[in-house]
């Protein structure tokens, strides 16, 4: 008895056999080729990630010897203009068409009065100044410690930047690129990519107390370029700050000493921790600016080891008096 399922194969002629053999051969050849092409002694194929380095953002013209202004006042807009004018005007730093990145301290979800972040009026004034010099893009960025949306909003910097015509760049997880800091302790770290997409960088720190590094002013502000687990930097904080300061050479530094956080830094949180000083510093030597600002925190250069380390790395001079700072009132 035959099977009820009796569909049998049709007979194969020579031509069909050759075609079938060719198909099987092609698949076998493909398999061999695949094996030959992708054979590897490594378990995972890795593409070499591009390693960036910071470009030199410093002003095209050499710094003037007295490139150091200390401006007292209460109108932050006027103070910014007066300070930059004293250094030779914004056109000395920003050429028309250049892309500018402003790096205030926006680390914390705090309001301006608490002096944990750079004052928004200063940031707005600098954005306007850069735009008036013909900058093609003015970005404001930081890698906040608290939630970035909250930090930028409640610090007032989001609103001030928007009104002045600048743009906030929030740094997301995807916005970090490996960058060689070429430091003694800091080698390759993830850095916000925005630094590699601009021509000029303006550092806008605020003067604050910090338990471990004693103070956070201009040099320590560069923590905010880093992503990754940057908390580890605390283990060698002075060397880390000096390395960062040597890696990022800004066009201009404006130090906010209008309200100074004198204790419980860098977060603050109480108006009792804030001392009103109504002062703005501007200059191109960040070490000197930091050294000058120590007076608000009752510190000397010797108390702050990273200043000496930064000086050794050629970032600037801690003997600020040699730069003949000019002190005046405006606004």
């Amino acid at each position: 008895m035959t099977s009820r399922e009796h569909n049998t194969e049709t007979e194969v002629n020579r031509r069909q056999l050759l075609i079938r053999a060719a198909k099987a051969g092609a698949v076998a050849g493909g398999a061999l080729l695949w094996g030959a092409l992708f054979y590897s002694r490594e378990p995972v194929r890795r593409r070499d990630e591009k390693i960036y380095t910071f470009r030199d953002y410093r002003a095209p013209e050499p710094a003037k010897t007295d490139s150091f202004a200390v401006v007292h006042g209460t109108d932050r807009e006027k103070m910014v203009r007066a300070a930059v004018d004293h250094l030779g005007g914004i056109s000395r730093f920003i050429r028309p068409g250049e892309r500018v990145l402003i790096k205030p301290n926006v680390g914390w979800d705090r309001q301006p009065e608490e002096a944990a972040n750079t004052h928004p009026a200063l940031v707005g004034a600098v954005v306007r100044l850069c735009l008036s010099a013909g900058a093609s893009k003015v970005w404001v960025t930081d890698v906040s410690v608290n939630d970035p949306y909250r930090s930028f909003a409640r610090s007032g910097i989001e609103e001030a930047t928007r009104q002045a015509g600048g743009r906030i760049r929030y740094t997301t997880d995807n916005d970090f690129v490996q960058t060689d800091l070429k430091g003694e302790v800091l080698k390759i770290w993830p850095v916000s990519r925005f630094y590699h997409e601009v021509d000029r960088v303006i550092n806008m720190p605020i003067v604050k107390h910090h338990s471990l590094s004693k103070c956070t002013i201009a040099l320590k502000n560069w923590y905010g370029v880093l992503g990754g687990r940057r908390n580890r930097l605390h283990q060698k904080i002075n060397e880390s700050i000096a390395d960062l300061a040597a890696a990022v050479r800004p066009t201009l530094t404006l130090v906010d000493a209008t309200r100074v956080l004198i204790r419980n830094g860098p977060t603050g949180g109480s108006l009792a921790d804030v001392s009103v000083e109504n002062t703005l510093l501007a200059g191109e030597d960040a070490v000197a600016l930091d050294a000058w600002s120590l007076r608000y925190l009752d510190l000397n250069v010797a108390d702050v080891p990273y200043l000496g380390l930064a000086e050794q790395r050629g970032v600037g001079v801690s003997d600020w008096a040699s730069l003949n700072p000019v002190e005046f009132s405006a606004g």
Binding site: L212, H234, I237, T267, G268, G269, S270, D273
Partner: peptide, 15 residues
């Protein structure tokens, strides 16, 4: 090893 990150980020005043 030096650290005190916890102290830095502590939000209360005083910390």
């Amino acid at each position: 090893i030096e650290c005190i990150v916890c102290e830095e980020v502590c939000p209360t005043s005083p910390k």
